[in-house]
Each structure stands twice: as structure tokens, then as C-alpha cells.
């Protein structure tokens, strides 16, 4: 009882976290105005350039998600606190969503501009591999029943998956690819840079809101599991 007392789980309260949802709505609305009403169409691509405003923020924020997965997976291995495992899992879910979004938007963009839906170059292939690793991570969580074992295996898988992100990011510089290297403010029209950053912040707020809500759900689920387990074992409901 004393050893377990350190990490007693409680049903989380939302507190002030929902405000990030409102920030997301606000920034998204503002970003749409700058992206569609203020920033002009690209001189080569026309309005297809606007995919930049979702494709790139999705890719950046997926990196933040996977960084959180790595940090909390390491923390779980260190402290063995179930909450770290649940935060890593929530970040992985949102990261996988953004990873899929990056891939799909990239394909939609590639078809009219490059002329193909897909090429097996280093950037696209490594991004797909990362997506599959995290799809595997989520499958692993779904199939392993025992919470401690699930958390341990997931932590290792999560770290292995997260290492892919720097490789994906650098792939266009390390290897010769169809995908162009990262744009910088000097290769972007200033109005594009502004809209891009606004959208990136909007997606960041979505990310924070989603991860928090997912974590609250996961923790509530875990507490319920533990209470029913304790009840089934004949112990007191509140230890």
C-alpha cells in the first residue's frame, strides 16, 4: 500500500484546459481569413499553394506529438508512473492522425503539381514508415491486456518510432529526393509565411486540446478499470 500510494490515480478534471480548444477555433478562423482572403495565389501553382497551410503545420505538429511520445515514454521507463504511459499514448494517437493527414494532403498536392500521387523517394517512404510504426504502436496497445506490460512495450515502441522524426525531417537534405527541401522565410512570400505560422499555431492548439482530452479519457478509463478490479478482488473501493 505504501509503494502504490505514490502513483494513486484519480479521475482528472478538465480545469482550464478547454480554453485551448477555443484558442484553436479562434486561430483557425483567423488563419482561414489570411490564407484565403489576404495571401495571393502562387505564381506557379495558383490556389494549390494553399495546401501548404495544412500540410506543413500537420507535419511540424506531428513532430511535437512524437517528441512528447519520446519524452513521456522515457519518463515512464524511469518513474513507472502510469500517467506518463497514458500521456505518451494520447500524444501518439494525435501524432498518428497528423502523420496520416500529412501523407494524404501531400498526395493530394503531389498529383496536380508533381504529376503523380506517390513516389518512393526517401522523404515519402520514411514518412510512411513512421506512420506504420505508430499504427503498430496503437495496435500493440490494443492487443496487450496487462497494463504494466503494455506500458513497458509501448514505451520502447514509442521511442523507436519517435527516432524516425529527425530522419524524416532531414531526409530531404541527406538524400536526393523528389520532395523539395524545407522552405524558409526567404523562399516564401511574406504573406505566405504569416499565414503558415498562424495555421501552425492553430494546429498546435488543436494538438494540445486533443492530447489533453484523450489523456483525460484514458485516465478515467484506467481508474474505472482499477476500481472494478479492486471490487472483483473483494478489496475496498477506495484504498
Amino acid at each position: 500500500m505504501t509503494a502504490a500510494a505514490a502513483f494513486t490515480l484519480e479521475v482528472p478534471k478538465s480545469g482550464r484546459w478547454p480554453i485551448f480548444g477555443w484558442f484553436a477555433v479562434l486561430f483557425l478562423a483567423g488563419a482561414q481569413i489570411t490564407a484565403f482572403a489576404i495571401s495571393p495565389p502562387d505564381r506557379d501553382m495558383g490556389d494549390l499553394q494553399k495546401i501548404l497551410y495544412v500540410h506543413v503545420p500537420a507535419a511540424w505538429n506531428m513532430g511535437i506529438c512524437y517528441l512528447l511520445v519520446a519524452i513521456y515514454s522515457f519518463r515512464y521507463l524511469w518513474k513507472r508512473d502510469d500517467r506518463d504511459d497514458l500521456i505518451a499514448a494520447s500524444a501518439a494517437e494525435v501524432g498518428t492522425l497528423l502523420n496520416g493527414l500529412t501523407l494524404v494532403l501531400g498526395m493530394i498536392w503531389a498529383r496536380p503539381t508533381w504529376g503523380v500521387w506517390w513516389v518512393w523517394d526517401a522523404r515519402l517512404t520514411s514518412t510512411l514508415i513512421m506512420f506504420l510504426v505508430f499504427a503498430g504502436y496503437l495496435a500493440l496497445r490494443a492487443f496487450v491486456e496487462e497494463p504494466d506490460r503494455r506500458a513497458l512495450w509501448s514505451a520502447v515502441a514509442g521511442i523507436m518510432g519517435a527516432i524516425n522524426y529527425p530522419i524524416v525531417y532531414m531526409s530531404v537534405r541527406w538524400w536526393r529526393t523528389i520532395h523539395q527541401v524545407q522552405s524558409t522565410p526567404s523562399t516564401l512570400d511574406p504573406t505566405y509565411t504569416f499565414s503558415l505560422r498562424l495555421n501552425a499555431v492553430a494546429v498546435l492548439f488543436i494538438l494540445i486540446y486533443f492530447i489533453r482530452r484523450r489523456y483525460e479519457a484514458a485516465l478515467t478509463e484506467r481508474v474505472t478499470e482499477q476500481l472494478s478490479q479492486a471490487a472483483a478482488l473483494g478489496g475496498p473501493l477506495h484504498a
Binding site: 503539381t113 508533381w114 504529376g115 503523380v116 523528389i178 522552405s183 516564401l188 512570400d189
Partner: peptide, 11 residues
Amino acid sequence: IIKHSNEYRAP
């Protein structure tokens, strides 16, 4: 296949 540069410019 087109290989686009990383430049995006307004007309």
C-alpha cells in the same frame, strides 16, 4: 515527374 523548388511567390 515535376520536382518543385522550395520557393513560393506571389505573382
